[in-house]
Design a protein around this nucleic acid. Structure first.
Length: 500
RNA sequence: CGGGGCGUGGCGCAGUCUGGCUAGCGCGCUUGGUUUGGGACCAAGAGGUCGAGAGUUCGAAUCUCUCCGCCCCGACCA
């Protein structure tokens, strides 16, 4: 029996550990198509949790859902120069619309399209073109639409959930009458993402604008939330873009203002993707597999009946059903506790470990001995796999919301402590180089808070370290300082890190 | 796309250098039994065109060539 359920451990081989967790937790698997994944039911259930919570937050901030086409006319993509530049290298292109059986029995594409279609890598262009038709007057504004969709970016180096050729996401696209409103929207959605990440994913994030080099192609400003994974690397977990009038000009999104003059709209876009599943895995999971924050766990509690004889089984199952009913009638985070009995006829130990590896926050084991004592054995995923506590059956409904809340908070605190311990204020280029080291050892480095100018020289300086400027954190007052590369004075420090 | 590693039953691997008995091992799976607050034990079994194709050879998992895929590093990348 190995000491840990996942092998190798994080310390031994972090990238391989990540893949093993994905497999052990049954989240996803490789597909026949390069760079594409099959998201398995357990992985998809986590995505559904994310969708549900985020969708509610979008609705609460005045947005509505719609759906735009998968295929984008090639000419649309050409409309915004920087946008083309940014995405041209990773587009799947549809050139034919028909297959014919060839003489050797193989299918041959025929029916060449007059204009090739691009499978959307993102939808600014086709949505912008649509908005141009929707919007005529200031009375039509703002337009606040979100879509849940898949997108395709032909990535050279895919990694399950973190970077796949096709992935699922949501993309919000809004149009406004003024720059101020659009900026406000951009920041509002950034806050929505930050709140979601910290409250629901228990994942502390740093939010702020990106340097010019890291901007979304076509954006005036890109803001992101950046999280630290357990190997010290940064993961961009969500982005919100102020697009200025770039797309409005390119696509003629205009409105008649109150004075009657025609003006270009100010637009925004913002998105998070199934990459968040990877983020959750790498933020919380341990050497025994997945660890899920309760708020996004498809299942909060699994009840495990333990019995030897048929008689015991009947009694135990009945007790389990009562507990299930009582817990289902109890709420945690404004939703009924999600609980299931696992009565499968497999060995108890195996069963326990399956749930450990899948990250179920709480296990409730009920056997004859527990029943005799009127209690259950409660185990938590944030504690050791063998630890358990006896809780009176009658008290379970009262206790569980508190336990789940404790787990949720505990995971956040643990992740924050980890990040803070790996974050440092640095005052010189030499310190930055020492902090990240030159080696490739996993776990080297973390977040370095350093004053740097938004300048190509800065990127060039840290390029050999594989370190990039992730964002310029917004929290707190200005702390002016001198750029450690250019010597220019800048208002606030940036976060530098190696990134996924 | 460049450098490196790898592809053998569901998972993890040995065997490949130095071609040759019916291709093995651990875990998992099936059945029976013994157990049982626990990732058990015993026994019997099922499961593999050794990534694909071509070639060399009496004989290829093993040698040669081509291709495909995966992982790591780089390039690249909201």
């Amino acid at each position: 029996m190995p000491a840990t359920a996942i092998s190798p451990t994080r310390a031994e081989d972090y990238p391989e550990w990540y893949q093993q967790v994905v497999r052990a937790a049954d989240l996803a698997e490789q597909s026949a198509v390069r760079g594409c994944m099959v998201i398995k039911p357990h992985g998809y259930a986590i995505w559904e949790r994310m969708q549900k919570i985020l969708d509610g937050m979008f609705k609460a901030t005045g947005h509505v859902n719609a759906y735009f086409p998968l295929f984008i006319p090639l000419s649309y993509l050409e409309q915004e120069a920087k946008h083309v530049e940014g995405f041209a290298k990773e587009c799947a292109v549809v050139t034919h619309h028909r297959l014919e059986l060839g003489p050797d029995g193989r299918l041959i594409p025929t029916g060449k399209l007059e204009e090739p279609l691009v499978v959307r890598p993102t939808s600014e262009t086709i949505i912008g073109a649509t908005y141009a038709k929707w919007i005529q007057s200031w009375r039509d504004l703002p337009v606040l639409v979100n879509q849940w969709a898949n997108v395709v970016r032909w990535e050279m180096r895919p990694r399950v959930f973190l970077r796949t050729a096709e992935f699922l996401w949501q993309e919000g696209h809004t149009a406004h009458a003024t720059a101020e409103e659009a900026v406000e929207e951009t920041l509002r959605m950034l806050d929505v993402y930050a709140t979601f990440a910290e409250r629901d994913l228990a994942m502390p994030v740093v939010k702020g604008p990106k340097p010019a080099a890291e901007r979304f192609p076509g954006a005036v400003d890109t803001y992101s939330i950046e999280a630290m994974m357990q190997d010290g690397k940064a993961l961009q977990a969500g982005t919100s873009h102020f697009l200025g009038q770039n797309f409005a000009r390119a696509q003629n999104i205009k409105f008649a203002g109150t004075s009657g003059a025609e003006e270009f709209c100010w637009t925004t876009s913002w998105g998070v993707s199934t990459r968040l599943i990877g983020a959750v895995i790498m933020t919380h999971s341990d050497d025994d597999g997945l660890v899920l924050p309760p708020r996004i766990a498809p299942q909060h509690v699994v009840i495990l009946p333990i019995s030897r004889t048929d008689e015991e089984r009947t009694a135990v199952l009945e007790a389990c059903r009562k507990v299930e009913a009582a817990l289902t009638a109890t709420t945690y985070a404004d939703e009924p506790i999600r609980v299931k009995i696992d009565a499968r006829d497999i060995r108890g130990g195996d069963k326990v470990w399956q749930h450990v590896k899948q990250g179920v926050p709480v296990r409730v084991e009920i056997g004859p001995r527990d029943l005799a004592a009127g209690a259950a054995s409660v185990s938590r995923r944030d504690r050791g796999p063998k630890e358990r506590e006896a809780v009176a059956l009658a008290e379970l409904p009262a206790r569980l919301p508190g336990i789940l809340d404790e787990i949720q908070r505990g995971l956040f605190e643990r992740a924050r402590s980890f990040r803070d311990a790996r974050s440092q204020r640095l005052g010189s280029r030499a310190e930055v180089e020492a902090f990240f080291g030159t080696g490739d050892s996993a776990g080297a480095g973390g977040f370095a808070r350093v004053h740097v100018a938004d300048d190509p020289a800065v990127a060039a300086a840290f390029d050999p370290l594989k370190v990039t400027v992730r964002c310029i954190p917004m929290e707190g007052p200005d702390e002016p300082g001198t750029c450690v590369v250019t010597g220019r004075s800048v208002p606030r420090p940036s976060v530098l890190a190696r990134a996924y």
